[in-house]
Structures are given as structure tokens and as C-alpha cells.
Simulated scan of single mutants.
Amino acid sequence: MRRISLAVLTIAAIVLTVAAPATASARGAKIRIEHRTSALYPYDPSYEQEGLAYPATIVRGEVRRCPAGTYFLSASLTQDGLPTVWATSGHGAGEVTCDGGTVSLTMGFYRTDPVLHPGRATVRFELHDAYVGTTLTETTRTVRIPR
């Protein structure tokens, strides 16, 4: 009985030792969103790029201590209590590949009615594991869209 208990404790210690660094690095990941967005620029959401252009802005940030792997960025911008739409048509938008260090995060946003305008907005960035779906880290910040 004592040999079984010692073996179980030894295995448990090995599992905890191996799992600890991955858990520690995941908890250490942190997103920082820049205080100001880009200036407003015209964005045409139509497929043909021959439609109306709406004011859009780009939000930039970074994730520090991002464990190596592939993640999906869930990004939102709210202004005057109203949501916006991603200003991107690129395949793979929102996909982030980390190598254990610092990685840039960028997302454009627009709205058709009412359009975005200079002033305050609230941005939320979340990173989710691409394969498991668990949230790695998240943050929300009030930003300024410049004139």
C-alpha cells in the first residue's frame, strides 16, 4: 500500500511540475490597448469597392507574454452605446500567432448609421485559443478617436 501511495505522489508531482510553466505563462499574458485610435479614414465595405465609403478607425494594441500558439482576436468597438463592424475583408482577420513574446494587435472598425465620429469609444480585445476556445486574456479600454 505504501509503494502505491509513493508512486501516486511521484506521478502527481511530475504532472504538476510539467503543467506549471504553461499555466504560469498563460496567466501572465496581458493585452494593452493604445489610448488613441487612428484618424478617421474612408472605408467602402462593398465587395466591388464601388459603394459608399464610411468613416472607419483602426485600434492598435499588443499582447505581452503571449504563449506560443495560434489565437483568435475577438474585438469590438462601441461608440454612443452602439456597436460597430470590423473594417476588414482579409482572410484570416483576427488570427494571431504568438511565439512567447510580444505581438501586435490591430483591428479596424466602421459603422453605417450613425457613422463613427471623433470622440470617446469603448474597445474590447479578447484572445481565445484557436483550438480549444478558452480565453487567454482580455481587456476593455476607453479610447479617443481624434479629429
Rank of each mutant, 00 (worst) to 15 (best):
A39E: 12
L40S: 06
L40A: 07
P45G: 08
S46H: 03
Y47A: 15
Y47G: 09
Q49V: 11
E50P: 00
Y54A: 08
Y54P: 05
A56W: 00
I58M: 09
V59H: 00
R60C: 02
R60Q: 09
R60H: 06
R65L: 13
C66M: 13
P67L: 05
G69M: 12
Y71R: 04
F72W: 14
F72I: 12
A75C: 05
A75D: 05
S76G: 11
T78C: 09
V85H: 12
A87F: 09
S89V: 03
S89K: 09
H91A: 15
G94S: 07
E95I: 15
V96M: 07
V96L: 07
T97L: 07
C98E: 00
T102W: 03
L105K: 08
T106Y: 10
M107E: 12
G108W: 01
G108L: 04
D113L: 14
L116A: 07
L116E: 03
L116Y: 01
R120K: 15
A121G: 14
V123H: 04
R124A: 08
R124C: 02
F125I: 02
F125P: 00
E126S: 15
E126M: 12
E126C: 11
H128E: 02
H128C: 00
A130Y: 06
T134S: 14
T134Y: 13
T135I: 14
L136N: 01
T137C: 13
